[in-house]
Write a protein that binds this DNA or RNA. Structure first.
Lengths: 327, 327
DNA sequence: TTGAAAGCGCTAACAA
DNA sequence: TTGTTAGCGCTTTCAA
């Protein structure tokens, strides 16, 4: 019947009474302990089923001192980069019997740290932070109670916190090398806002240009606050190719550049497949990063004490936005 | 120092000892009970701070019988439609002092139901299901222990479960009317896969065509398994405008149609802004839907027993993909 | 204003 | 194979 809710959720004691046994035996039976006789076991399961019993994870967590829950803290749900990392975390966690719950920071540092706190209060067994926005203080603090690993490149390492990041310099180098090999010389860079990642990408750009003997052609412009305007200004300088700090910046360039200008983005978001021309972009191994993060968490649980900082190599995905320069 | 983790998280008893009071007093002081003398209160807070104490939400939840946590179950993290609903839920939940945790179903019904179970075991105080994939059985089952509201249009209502959906017929009508008003007569529809929503959208299309005296021009083709192919075939029939069941289908049409063919999508995802031409699309009031869902949850907690099924009206967002027919 | 004691639902010794 | 008992960390009477 609609709207019926029993006054009280059935507990293990209710099941015990219904089955005419002690509550410890119910506990054992429900977890499939082999030391329970088949007949009683069946009787208990039947009773539990009939009452609609579900174990109370809070109570179990309280007595066991662990919850078998991993928390994932995200800056921004809408960012497809983040969600693929989550998929990696989930895969690894599933395999080990952990449940993954997500907390969302909504692009707000205060809120992120608040949500981190909420996860800790829940006694999660570990936290994966997919965000560079959480301060090192808050991270280190959290890491004193539970294993914490952050995915992304922090401005500064927090003690006790492992990290997993992609090699931004290598990614940028691959992108620029690709353009050089296509025959471009006038290669410009639409750079980021000064985050550690964007700085490394710029560095990779500069290095590769230098090595290609194109030091004189180096042209860098930061996206600043107005992406469209920055893209327009960069294009106005007349490059034949642009390496952009991320996919959104690359789209802005694509939008302002005349056909024939090659563009490479970074992050290989789902946008890259959707826009026309399809965007060549540097792909971070996001799922692997999530899996690795989870493994680091488990290692910590296993007793490791030294910090680990893993760096993975990204790969360039070539699509239709890059081609040899038009004569 | 790196890797240091105290053997045991400080508990309320540790704080009590450090402050030289009983644990009940600590409990009161930490929650700012006015019945605690100022001096003792300060002493207790100082001790808690010094020890780095955080309350254990599991324990509190156990004794209070509620957790002040709302769970959100999502089909697909990567779907921007879902994430905006979440934003609405969070806003409403924050205002009432609830914490929101997300569980992710990864587009897999089995897994969705498993995750729903995980939320229930955590004793969340309510669940918002942002998915049409969870079966009515599982929903009704969950609703027997805790308030549940689903956002989306279910194939079949589950007893005890409130719903919040958009009016798909109205959305489709707005889209088609817009095309008619622009002067189009050869308006085709790329329809969906038979979900309740897609059927309603098709119905809205047919109705509006009939009312416009264009019954003879009705041309419907389902996306089927190969979206690209379906879009190509539809375009080959030579319509001057297409109403597509969702944004992705609309993009496929845009990709195959000659310039000048008007296209309207549905859902107004972030893609609509990104592609060229920018896509006109029907916008569901997603944040409002999330907020409303949360309010329904709170109403249930407040004792409402009858089911409620809310339907909100979407609005058409006109961008560059629609224009009068070329002569 | 403070403390003692009971108990939330469960697991984990230990005993029977 | 089953039952008894003692907590996990917290809140909540009820007394002092």
């Amino acid at each position: 019947m609609t709207g019926t809710r029993p006054r009280r959720r059935p507990t293990i004691v209710d099941v015990a009474e219904a089955a005419g046994v002690s509550k410890s035996l119910v506990s054992l039976a429900l977890r499939g302990d082999p030391g329970v006789s088949e007949a009683t076991g069946a009787r208990i399961l039947a009773a539990a089923d009939r009452l609609g019993y579900r174990s109370n994870r809070l109570a179990r967590g309280l007595v066991q001192g662990r919850t078998m829950i991993l928390g994932v803290l995200l800056t921004d749900l809408a960012n497809p980069y983040h969600t693929e990392v989550v998929a990696g975390v989930e895969e690894a966690a599933d395999a080990r019997g952990f449940t993954v719950l997500l907390a969302h920071g909504r692009r707000d540092r205060k809120r992120l740290e608040h949500q981190l706190d909420a996860l800790l209060q829940l006694n999660v067994d570990g936290v994966v932070v997919v965000s560079s926005w959480v301060g090192p203080r808050a991270l280190a603090d959290a890491a004193r109670r539970v294993p914490v690993v952050m995915v992304g490149r922090p401005r500064e390492f927090a003690p006790g916190v492992d990290t997993v990041a992609n090699d931004d310099v290598a990614g940028a180098r691959a992108a620029v090398r690709h353009l050089v090999e296509l025959g471009h010389t006038r290669i410009a860079h639409l750079s980021g806002s000064g985050s550690p990642s964007s700085r490394s990408r710029e560095e990779g750009y500069r290095e590769t240009m230098r090595e290609a003997g194109l030091a004189d052609e180096v042209l860098v412009r930061p996206v600043g606050t107005d992406r469209e305007q920055a893209a327009g200004a960069l294009v106005a300088a007349g490059p034949s190719a642009v390496f952009a700090v991320n996919d959104l910046a690359a789209l802005a360039v694509l939008d302002h550049a005349p056909p024939g200008v090659s563009v490479v983005g970074y992050d290989n978001t789902s946008l890259a497949e959707v826009v026309r021309p399809r965007l060549s972009s540097v792909d971070q191994p996001r799922a692997v990063m999530g899996t690795l993060a989870t493994e680091l968490l488990l290692e910590r649980m296993g007793g490791r004490t030294g910090d680990r900082h893993e760096v993975l190599t990204p790969t360039l995905v070539v699509r239709d936005s890059t081609a040899p320069p038009r004569p």
